[in-house]
Amino acid sequence: MSLSNGGGRSGEWHAAGQSQGSSQGSSQGPSHSYPLLVRDHGLGTALKLLLETLPYALARWAVLLGFAAACAVFAFVAVGGAVWLGTHVASVFGYCWLLGTLLLGGWIWGAILRYTVHMIACGHVAVLTELITHGRIGNGTEGQFAYGRRIVMDRFGEVAVLFGLNALIRAVLRAFHNALDTLGDWLPVPGMKAIVGLLNTILSAATRYLDKVVLSYDLARGGGDPRRNIQDGLVYYCQNAKPILTTSVWMVIVERILSILLCLLLLVPAGLVTVWLPEAVREYGAIVTVFIAALLAVTVRAAFIQPLFLICMMIRFHALIEHQPINSTWVGYLDGLSDKFRQIGR
């Protein structure tokens, strides 16, 4: 792989890549030391761990269903209020009500939902990290929710900050991906711009898991310096970019296929729900059925399918960096590539 934006950067990339596998030059010893009992990142292993931690997946699904139902009520109030104001007062008030409730209310609603799901996901990641590294939860006497809640509360500052750092982490990864000719190396065929653009989109979607992977690394590594843990996690990602991104591409493709199949399968129960709705709603039966199916598919995908691939990514990451020296050249490279990397430290 090579950098696409200049010879100087390309030299840094090749220097980092050449010293990645050795302990000489700018490489140090492994910056972590923790056991690893699970190394197979296949879907079978991930499914087994997901079933073992099913209470967290069910809790996330229940929260998402509750928010989805409330969202439907919120949308009804927004549209109904706009229609009433437009009919009885003035159309401009109706438009203002609709835009105000959808934009402001939707933003607040989305922030609350994202933060709630983030906290549940962090508890889930804490439990999964224990199973991957030690094969048990805590000292063996705590339940999953008790352990996850204890870890999240003990590290509440890190968990809360990581929610805000997600945008910074993605910005660093976006700068890193843009600087690589990764796809040109994988698809050395002329005239492939459309496919390369599609794969770039896939890579962008794949990085959604990395903030939780970095949290898993922070939990497994421990210590009192989460800032360094997060930065080292990003450095390890860059050192192992090609195998991780190769895995990510296939994961995202399979995830999309499963999501489409899931939506089609849920059309049947969605149709049954539509039949039970009031007659005024049943007049728009096809639209309502598709809407309900899509809403159910989104919640099931977020509660079960996405955590499945998160587990795959966590195992892949931990297995790749096991006993691997960290290359300090990458720290300077990322520091110069994006100021967001420095902001993570601050």
Rank of each mutant, 00 (worst) to 15 (best):
V161S: 13
L103T: 14
R170P: 01
V92G: 02
L183S: 04
S33M: 02
P188E: 11
S204E: 14
G25H: 05
G143W: 01
Y147C: 02
M119Q: 12
A68W: 02
V73Q: 15
L64A: 01
G94K: 04
G271W: 06
M153P: 07
F317Y: 14
P188V: 04
R256D: 09
I287W: 10
G8V: 12
I253T: 12
A46K: 02
G6H: 07
L234D: 10
S259I: 12
I169M: 14
A220Q: 12
D211Y: 06
G143Q: 02
G143L: 01
G81V: 10
R149L: 01
G164S: 10
I321E: 07
Q324N: 15
D232N: 10
M192Q: 15
V92E: 06
A15E: 09
A126H: 01
K193F: 05
H177D: 13
V298L: 05
S19R: 08
G157P: 04
A220R: 10
Y333G: 03
K242T: 11
G100A: 12
A82P: 02
A303S: 14
H32A: 12
W250H: 04
E279Q: 14
L113P: 08
S91F: 13
R9K: 14
R150D: 04
S204Q: 13
T53I: 07
F145P: 00
L180F: 00
L199M: 08
V254R: 13
V189E: 03
P55W: 00
H88T: 14
G197M: 07
A75I: 09
G271Y: 06
G345I: 04
M313L: 06
H318T: 08
Q306K: 10
L334N: 13
D40F: 03
G222L: 10
R208K: 07
L43E: 09
